[in-house]
């Protein structure tokens, strides 16, 4: 479903290269974890997948469902099924959460040539998904992410993911800022979305999240490259010994 080929990327308007020849393959149905020390390029990778303009791909390619996404803007990627759950969802004053959700769902449907949702259908879907994630509907009456606690923001991200039904989910440190109960709710939300036709890329610092969302593959990112890949036992090994051994072995 996703294939990243020898990707090089830098911060736009500078010469600072962050991604330096990254290769990664994620199949449909797979949950891939990406781990790595601070500054290894994990969040950058998530932004590049989503199409953020702050980064410029200088060579290599990102193939999603057989096609390069590099020429697609973020909304086109989203409409084709790419979803990024942000590490730090931005607060957007003045934009009502419900209006935003409705616009996003309908614009994606429109881009795929589907009918717009009726208002009752839309509200029913939101209520259902919010209930599963223990999100109070009153929270959704507030402006988008404004005044949400850290945990509420992360749950709101997963709510959007459920509603938009993407094919490729990229979760950027979704566990940061979550207490144990919220971690459980969010993980259950993600696990409920596991599907043979859907791939999930989980970016995390800690093994803790991977106890809840058990990955099929684990990849270690260091200095903008995948330096080691393995199964879920690799995450345990990292938890125990840190990154030093893996980095040394790769050097």
């Amino acid at each position: 479903m996703l294939e990243i080929r020898d990707l090089h990327a830098k911060i736009a308007d500078t010469d600072t290269e962050i991604i330096r020849g990254l290769n990664l393959k994620v199949e449909a149905g797979e949950v891939a974890a990406i781990m790595g020390p601070n500054g290894s390029g994990k969040s950058t990778l998530s932004y590049i997948l989503a199409g953020r303009e702050d980064y410029e791909v200088t060579s290599g390619d990102i193939i999603y469902n057989g096609e390069s996404v590099l020429e697609m803007d973020p909304s086109e990627r989203a409409a084709s099924g790419v979803f990024l759950a942000f590490q730090y969802p931005v607060e957007i004053p003045g934009v009502a959460t419900m209006e935003f959700l409705k616009t996003a769902m309908n614009e994606q449907r429109k881009a795929r040539g589907e009918e717009e949702l009726s208002i009752p259908d839309f509200i029913r879907k939101v209520k259902e998904a919010a209930g599963d994630l223990k999100i109070d509907m009153a929270m959704l009456k507030r402006p988008l992410n404004v005044g949400f606690s850290g945990g509420e923001k992360k749950r709101a991200e997963i709510l959007q993911m459920k509603l938009l039904e993407p094919q490729l989910c990229v979760l950027d440190e979704t566990d940061s800022g979550l207490d144990i109960d919220a971690l459980k709710i969010v993980s259950d939300g993600v696990n409920a979305l596991r599907d043979p036709n859907r791939a999930v890329v989980v970016i995390t610092h800690y093994q803790r999240l991977l106890e809840h969302i058990v990955p099929d593959s684990v990849h270690v990112l260091y200095k903008g490259q995948v330096i080691k890949s393995g199964d879920k036992s690799l995450a345990l090994e990292l938890e125990e010994n840190g990154y030093a051994n893996v980095i040394e072995a790769a050097a």
């Binding site: 973020p74 990024l84 994606q108």
Partner: peptide, 25 residues
Amino acid sequence: PAHLFYLMARGVSEKSARGLLVKGF
């Protein structure tokens, strides 16, 4: 631009996203 990217990353076209942000403002 961070607001615009967030909305577009949810599939809202640039034109609509700008509209939502201006209206919200």
